[in-house]
Design a binder for these strands. Structure first.
Lengths: 260, 260
DNA sequence: CAGTGGTCTAGACCACTTG
DNA sequence: AAGTGGTCTAGACCACTGC
């Protein structure tokens, strides 16, 4: 058996989807119909459809059916200092809103203590969890730690709006952000808030923001659905104009393991 | 049935893996053992393991067993102009090599013609496919189009080494790169070269490079395994120092649909 | 050879959506 | 009530690995 039946079926459907035989939003044949069409058992049909789901081409709704997924993506732009997310979204014709899920002072892990340079004797910070809604649909789960003095002083504003605009309004300028972009998979929490199955592909932006005095003030991660979001970056020869020689470049960002 | 059995089993194993009860590389109990341990059918055990595989926590080898995956990731740094990939890898203790899979002059699609500003009458470019090997293991599939004159003049060098260093050596300086980072899924080609199952999560860096005269010269995408690679970015308040006012920022990168 | 995972079947029961 | 997908079982046969 060179190629499994379920692959043959999912590949055939895949090509039909990619060549727009089935358009975005359109319903695929039911499992029963596919069983008859390909003369296979239900479990094989289900596996074929599961293949397409993991490839982000199909979404299924219990009791309704399987539908071709919308593969359009919303772009976050990292070219600006991430302060203008709302404007960025407006430019793409998307209404932006947010909901604070949690805001409280907590003791942090060793790695967060080191990243934010908190005193080892009292390694505390404010932990924020925010859910970003795009056109009313949950799109991004934002989990960040912020220095305790800032979290305390700005608590009211921080609960209502995004972190970076709040800091800017308070006169605290973010000079630079060190970030890692990576693929991750939905755990129970992300699965719940972002309305995806466990294990669904996500794109995670893990970052540390530094104020103009080079002090780290915010550390956290923004977790978005991998099938609906992407990041735009502009890379320049001389990132800040500090060094005009070739070969000199910004400090290497160290990959940080997550224990957020 | 509040939570499915397969989820209960995969979640239990997941916690054991994350808390290092099972270490990286260690073999999990066989399907038979898990069937006995949880008193479930084989199909349920298999589904539990499949959950862990899609989450990147486990890899399975036919005839051998299921093993805890290595979750260490290699970091590409976008802070430098991407010319020093080999140095970046060396710093992470990784031997870097590459293999040219394809190098030929082709007619390009409409979108590539527009991006590279090629004449509509003769929309041709050189298409390169390169496989990047890290410690001898395939890690990244790099598919790019380069202007026909450059491809022709530098063909010998381009087949032997990476595109950007070759251009630099020829005195062609890359001024900036517009890029999109996104999660994708393995198609047949990526699956073959990167040694992953169809549909496996990938991280794609789709880019257009501009020379100092603002002319687009290279366009393409670098496709890497999502479970093994991540991108580091430094975001600065004033990307190039051209504008020191707040609120002024670089041009918005337009998401480009792939037909590479 | 025994042990492992890979594919597939036929059939049962449940949960959700729609009319 | 009918149609959809979601979960689960018991059992068969095949393919690969390692002794």
């Amino acid at each position: 058996m060179p190629t499994p039946l379920h692959s043959l079926i999912s590949e055939k459907l895949r090509h039909q989807i990619l060549s727009n035989d089935y358009q975005a939003g359109q319903q695929l044949p039911s499992e029963h119909q596919l069983m008859a069409e390909f003369s296979v058992s239900r479990i094989t049909v289900r596996r074929a459809i599961a293949n397409l789901v993991t490839q982000g081409l199909v979404v299924v709704h219990q009791g309704k059916g399987a539908f071709v997924a919308d593969r359009q993506k919303v772009t976050y732009s990292l070219s600006s200092p991430l302060i203008f997310l709302e404007d960025d979204m407006a430019r793409q014709g998307i209404k932006f809103s947010m909901q604070t899920l949690l805001f409280e002072r907590v003791s942090v892990s060793d790695s967060v203590q080191q990243i934010l340079q908190l005193p080892a004797t009292q390694p505390q910070a404010y932990l924020q969890k925010k859910l970003l809604l795009l056109n009313g649909i949950p799109g991004c789960l934002d989990i960040t730690y912020i220095l305790p003095d800032l979290g305390h002083a700005l608590s009211k504003k921080l609960k209502q709006q995004m972190t970076f605009p709040t800091l800017e309004q308070a006169g605290i300028l973010i000079d630079r952000i060190e970030a890692i972009l990576e693929c991750t998979h939905a755990d129970a929490e992300a699965s719940q808030y972002l309305d995806v199955p466990l294990g669904h592909a996500l794109i995670t932006y893990r970052h540390t923001a530094y104020a103009t005095d080079n002090r780290p003030i915010v550390h956290g991660e923004s977790i978005s659905r991998g099938d609906r979001f992407c990041y735009a970056v502009n890379v320049f020869r001389n990132p800040v104009g500090h060094n005009s020689q070739m070969g000199v470049r910004a400090q290497h960002a160290v990959p940080q393991r997550s224990d957020i």
